[in-house]
Design a protein around this nucleic acid. Structure first.
Lengths: 160, 160
DNA sequence: TTATATGCAAACGCTTTGCATCACG
DNA sequence: CGTGATGCAAAGCGTTTGCATATAA
């Protein structure tokens, strides 16, 4: 099943109606390779000439956040963005600081490290969050090429 | 030297004036064991009957953030708060979800883990951030006592 | 027919900005 | 004097809410 389908399914499984508006949000969200804001969705909806209210988008995103289908991210700039992600396992995010592309990273060894830190400080850890920012393979290549200067097309940006 | 002094010194070293207002902010910030918001400082200033403008507080916090004397934290709730911290080395934050107390955590092994994740995903990592939330020793003890029920005074909160 | 979902616009909280004034170097 | 700092109030931005309407179970 595609991602849009998975999101809609998550809604239904949780007992919410898969209304046309929510399907639209699912679709817009799924079409995103990276992070996005509520305003982005609104804007894209507007471009496609679909009528959807600001509040509806926010409410849909809240829902999807509860269902862990999307997660709210804090960018280094301090602003917020959403990313689609895997609802089924604890993970963290790797975010491209150039194109915004995001992918899930398994918790892996981090759990052990977190435990250790908790023990060392006498804290009873309840939650932890790791966020990684950097250039994704495509953007890193583009950046190198641009720096090398020889082959790079100018002004191009790598966008997922 | 005390923390207020250290903050003021950091301002001066960076070529900023240590004005009365900025000293006040330094003092308010240093008096905080945990995280705080601009509004908190404003409120405490008001209680002490000192006249300081909203904008001034925000501007001072911006400055201190640049100097890495404070850091802006994203709480699980999605809201922002500041914490005082060590400007001199890369670290992360351990925050008590009950009393808000915060302490620095050395990066330690995390650097290695971050490298590895970057390599595995082909990302050129530029920055990473780890945030840990849980009960500090005092609050954990209080919580346990309250749960046990026998000895705990009711309604008390542990505040640093 | 009852619960849910939606749109709109107003309210909100937090933060920034414009601008005149003030203090320091 | 000139640059930097401040206060105030207004503007800005992202998000939430109240409420009447519309839609689905």
């Amino acid at each position: 099943m595609n991602q849009t389908g998975r999101i809609i399914q998550a809604l239904e499984r949780a007992g919410y109606q898969a209304t046309p508006n929510r399907r639209l949000v699912a679709q817009l969200v799924a079409a995103t390779g990276g992070h996005f804001t509520a305003a982005d969705l609104l804007e894209r909806g507007r471009l496609e000439r679909v009528n959807i209210g600001r509040a509806t988008v926010f409410r849909a995103l809240d829902l999807l956040t509860d269902l862990r289908v999307v997660e709210r991210l804090d960018l280094p700039s301090g602003s917020h963005a959403y990313v689609v992600c895997d609802p089924d396992e604890h993970h963290h995010h790797l975010v491209c600081s150039s194109c915004g592309h995001s992918e899930d990273v398994a918790d892996g060894e981090l759990a052990r490290l977190v435990d250790e830190i908790g023990r060392r400080h006498g804290y009873q850890i309840e939650a932890h969050r790791l966020e990684l920012f950097g250039l994704c393979p495509a953007c890193a290549t583009a950046a190198t090429a641009a720096a090398g200067g020889a082959t790079a097309a100018t002004g191009e940006e790598t966008v997922h």
